[in-house]
């Protein structure tokens, strides 16, 4: 009733604001598009020249000699990420189950923000702690130079905890209360209820949490450079130094010119494809979950 006399100006304003927002939203996509375009424009010529297979499967990286093979870095990323998941996933899931199903309200009021705070710590801080605490520890007690797959995996395992905890926590919370109550009413213990009903029902969410954590681990750079040792060799053990795809770009970008620079952009392409695939998978699982519910 009140809006009646001003219907026209309201509509007008709304339309303008709506269009402005559309433009802003599109510009975000445009930025993404430009980045993709730029990476591919800079990186694809050398991939074409060397050959995609030789670039990806080449085991030797010696830019000053014009040899560009990123297989050691691909393996590096795989090992480090796998290690981070082995450490981060059980810890993160256990923590999320506790928070969602068992923790008294007071404990979860403290723990939840604490976990979120963990996500806010800059990666260079994780890296620094890894460098001064973890690397000497590994060198002293396990041998090797200390800079290793193990050090990077532990640091990353801790760094992906917040991602895994908060997403799987939401997945647990989204399981209808009636499921759990029904289970308990049937005489199941709390652990049986969690294991037989809640975990399976939350599975898509858990998978999404793991994949997003994986994405974080693959993409992390600074902390990894500081503790991984950055050797351009496929690691022979978890105590050997290793270089990941992201470290390769960050380490040499400042120096690189010509072909070397192109090769780093090509590394970026590989990284981009890997992360895009991971996100796509996560999205598939996440929507799959919603449909099932």
């Amino acid at each position: 009733m009140e809006g009646d006399p001003m219907r026209y100006p309201m509509r007008y304003r709304e339309a303008v604001i709506e269009k402005t927002l559309v433009i802003v939203a599109l510009s975000a996509i445009a930025v993404l598009g430009l980045i993709i375009l730029f990476i591919f424009k800079e990186g694809s010529p050398i991939m074409a020249r060397i050959g995609v297979i030789r670039f990806i499967a080449g085991a030797k990286w010696a830019p000053s000699r014009g040899v560009f093979g990123i297989l050691p870095m691909i393996w590096g990323s795989i090992w480090v990420t796998l290690g981070a998941l082995i450490i981060g996933v059980p810890l993160g899931l256990a923590c999320a189950i506790f928070l969602a199903e068992m923790a008294p309200a007071r404990a979860s009021a403290i723990l939840k923000p604490a976990v979120e705070l963990l996500a806010g710590i800059p990666s260079v801080v994780y890296g620094f702690i890894g460098l001064v605490v973890l690397v000497p520890f590994i060198r002293r007690w396990f041998g090797g130079p200390g800079f290793s797959v193990l050090a990077a995996a532990i640091v990353l395992g801790i760094m992906i905890l917040p991602t895994i905890i908060s997403i799987s926590f939401d997945a647990f919370k989204a399981v209808p209360v009636a499921y759990r109550d029904g289970m308990l009413a049937l005489g199941a213990t709390r652990w049986q209820a969690i294991r037989m009903v809640i975990l399976p029902a939350a599975r898509p969410g858990i998978v999404a949490a793991v994949i997003l954590g994986m994405g974080r681990a693959v993409g992390e750079t600074m902390a990894v450079i500081m503790v991984a040792g950055n050797a351009t060799k496929i690691p022979s053990s978890i105590l050997a130094p290793v270089r990941t795809l992201t470290s390769n770009i960050a380490l040499e970008m400042g120096y690189a010119a010509g072909e070397h620079r192109e090769a780093l952009f090509a590394t970026g392409i590989v990284l981009f494809v890997v992360i895009a695939l991971l996100n796509l998978t996560a999205r598939l699982f996440a929507t799959g979950g919603r449909v099932a519910r």
């Binding site: 000699r65 450079i225 050797a231 050997a240 130094p241």
Partner: peptide, 11 residues
């Protein structure tokens, strides 16, 4: 000669 790829690389 080449520096071994197994070397720890610091920046």
């Amino acid at each position: 000669a080449e520096v071994t790829p197994g070397a720890v690389v610091q920046d």
